[in-house]
Design a protein around this nucleic acid. Structure first.
Length: 272
DNA sequence: ATGGTGGGCGACCCA
């Protein structure tokens, strides 16, 4: 039995139901993790999601911005919502599938929307950047992300982590060194988070680090294909126990060219 | 060096 997990920053779920449906038809995920749903839980389009083949829906939304949601063909044994930096932001939800519905062992899928961090890469001058760094520090030491290490359960971290760590995760390493998402201080923090699992960057098992790989192209360009000025802000990490089971990966780049697109594209990973 | 576009919501916030 295999399991396909997909992650996508959708930038408002309600105005993009048609492209969510299109991505589901293309990628056939068992579990779909969305970020930036921008939708309160009591306004969520549950019936539309059920009609796409996901009877199991876990929501952590708030009015106006942020918000994450995880949909599944398979039932949840458990749902957990993390809250970080004492701000009440909806930026995390975790679901657990029991072994019979996963790959023989319980599997917890953490869906994150890390703060973007504003424009100025200095925590002294920019409270949004300070929040981004504090958020990363907090999740790095967060107990629920620890217990898989060295023992039984499988675990996955997906989401819009809003950091492009490798030189080939941006269109120009030199030009983006001072641009929020690729600054050394953020990359170092993300590396500490990754090492805390430790977590395996499974996307890079499929596209070697020498090759460029992007999941996001700015809206602020008339043509996203011009010079391919993208960044890899969206990630799929697996626990060391699970990483060898990753068998296929798709970055659905064409979705950036769909009608009324998100600025991010879906990433699908198949295990088992 | 700057501004470019796109969401939510109800006047400017955020990405």
């Amino acid at each position: 039995m295999s399991l396909t997990v997909c992650t996508w920053n959708i930038n408002s779920v309600r105005i993009r139901l048609d492209i969510v449906r299109a991505a589901v038809e293309r990628l056939r995920p068992d579990v779909l993790c969305l970020q930036e749903t921008k939708c309160q839980d009591d306004k969520f389009p549950l019936n539309a999601i059920r009609d796409m083949g996901f009877p199991h829906i876990a929501l952590n939304g708030q009015k106006g911005w942020h918000g994450v949601a995880t949909f599944s063909k398979r039932p949840f044994a458990r749902i957990e919502k993390g809250e970080f930096c004492g701000k009440g932001d909806a930026r995390h939800i975790a679901v657990t599938l029991d072994g019979a519905h996963a790959l023989g062992k319980p599997l917890t899928i953490h869906n994150f929307y890390v703060p973007a961090g504003g424009d100025v890469p200095d925590p002294e001058l920019n409270p949004k950047f300070a929040h981004k760094l504090a958020f990363l520090d907090e999740i790095t030491s967060w107990a629920p992300l620890k217990p898989h290490a060295g023992n039984a359960d499988h675990a996955i971290v997906v989401g819009d982590l809003n950091i492009a760590p490798l030189e080939t995760d941006v269109w120009s390493h030199k030009q983006l060194l001072t641009v929020v998402s690729h600054t050394p201080v953020e990359v170092e923090r993300l590396g500490a988070f990754q090492a805390s699992g430790p977590w395996v960057d499974v996307m890079r098992r499929f596209v070697p680090p020498q090759e460029k790989l992007f999941t996001w192209w700015s809206y602020r360009s008339p043509d996203y294909t011009a010079n391919d000025r993208g960044r890899r802000l969206d990630h799929v990490w697996a626990s060391e126990s699970l990483a060898p089971s990753a068998t296929a990966m798709t970055v659905l780049k064409e979705a950036r060219g769909w009608e009324k697109p998100s600025d991010h594209v879906p990433v699908a990973m198949t295990f088992g």
